[in-house]
Design a protein around this nucleic acid. Structure first.
Lengths: 160, 160
DNA sequence: TGTGCTATGTATAACGT
DNA sequence: TACGTTATACATAGCAC
């Protein structure tokens, strides 16, 4: 989608990678927003930037969709596990070894979560600005996309 | 992005809306997948179709990213609420009145969640197939996009 | 519902600023 | 780090299966 085709693999140059992230970050959000409006469906999308700042968009909101999805997963893992595994399905598990307390299946794990909350509180202020971006994205597809308007001059224009 | 430009508003004809959903559903996933690979960032995207089937993609997985995000939100809501509200920020709250138990801020709410899990278990089997789709999406951007290859014949080809 | 087709709208790579 | 420009790659509307 540019002067040249690029292969989908990690951009090695950290500087270029940051530029690529900046340019492509809005892509999924716009697509997701359009889909949610056109088809009136629930959707949530969350991205953590290279600097680990969260960018999100959700319809009606990320929390609702994410929680709904997680509950589906957890219900599947806890009770239907035996039957599902019989079909050869097994959740791939977290390969990055994060300690986010992913998959709160048991009440006991909630206590561990509480500890995580305290840790997160230290960094929360820095995240607030980035989180605000998600609200702005709602407007994107509804505007005439001002930034691209200039291109109208260049675009091929068939007989009509 | 087709023979005609369409405005981003709900597609009124239910039949057309379903078609539009089918065609556009993969869009956000492909963009999200490309972004996660190119920039090596964490991303999660979940869509509930018109028929309420979940489609998801996540890197490293939806659970990790979604949980991480929810924890950030919860931490912000619980402890930093006073300071944040002072800046005029208040979470818009869930307008759809779902009973998903969205936003598990307190340990006491975990018990309510457990009740929800039981309800979800009844419908889980129907969702499994749709959930599998999310794993396939990973391949999309890495393939030469076979379905579009034909278009190479048509595409404008400058001197080089 | 999903697939394949072609014409056209959009996103974005490479380059500046 | 983000924004403007242009050429090009990609996504998709409308159509037929």
């Amino acid at each position: 989608m540019g002067h040249r085709k690029i292969e989908i693999a990690i951009v090695k140059d950290p500087n270029m990678r940051q530029v690529t992230f900046s340019k492509r970050r809005t892509g999924p959000f716009k697509k997701a927003n359009e889909l949610s409006i056109l088809c009136d469906v629930e959707i949530a999308i969350v991205v953590f930037s290279i600097g680990n700042k969260p960018y999100s968009f959700g319809h009606p909101c990320v929390d609702v969709v994410a929680t709904k999805f997680l509950q589906l997963q957890q219900a599947a893992n806890s009770s239907n596990a035996k039957q599902i595994d019989a079909q050869g399905r097994n959740n791939p598990s977290n390969e990055l070894g994060r300690k986010e307390g992913c998959g709160v299946t048991q009440l006991s794990q909630c206590k561990e979560l509480q500890g995580s909350y305290l840790e997160f509180q230290h960094g929360v202020k820095d995240y607030i600005d980035a989180i605000e971006v998600s609200e702005c994205m709602i407007l994107l597809a509804q505007e005439p996309m001002v930034g691209i308007t200039k291109q109208v001059t260049t675009k091929r224009r068939k007989k009509n």
